[in-house]
Amino acid sequence: MSDKHMETGEGHIGYPGYIGVFTILVVGTIFTYFSSFWDLDSIFPGANTLLALAIAFTKMTFVMLFFMHVYWSPRLIWLSAVASFFWLAIMFAYTMQDYFTRGLGVFSV
């Protein structure tokens, strides 16, 4: 994205593009709803949750890239966006290290 676009505030992908992204979000939501009825946990525990999170992550990526204009933004904005994921990963990872190691070692039952 050129600076000119940033200055003029043009819709980067235009209304058809925005409607396309919105459609993807709606389809993703419907897909999340129906997939919750599938017994994916029989494949491996947590598979249902994993699929739901994958859909949510995809939807969020579209929102960030196009609705929030990150796709056309300077590198500093990209860095901020990536850093926020890194930070989110910290929250999940350090919380999960608790859940995954409960009952292990001296406290195993």
Binding site: W87, M91, Y94, Q97, D98, Y99, T101, L104, F107
Partner: peptide
Amino acid sequence: GFLVWGHHMFVSGQSIYAGMVF
């Protein structure tokens, strides 16, 4: 500062390994 929150939870039932890391 974002990596140490578990030290408020040492006796909460949190995993002992998580406690050691925190």
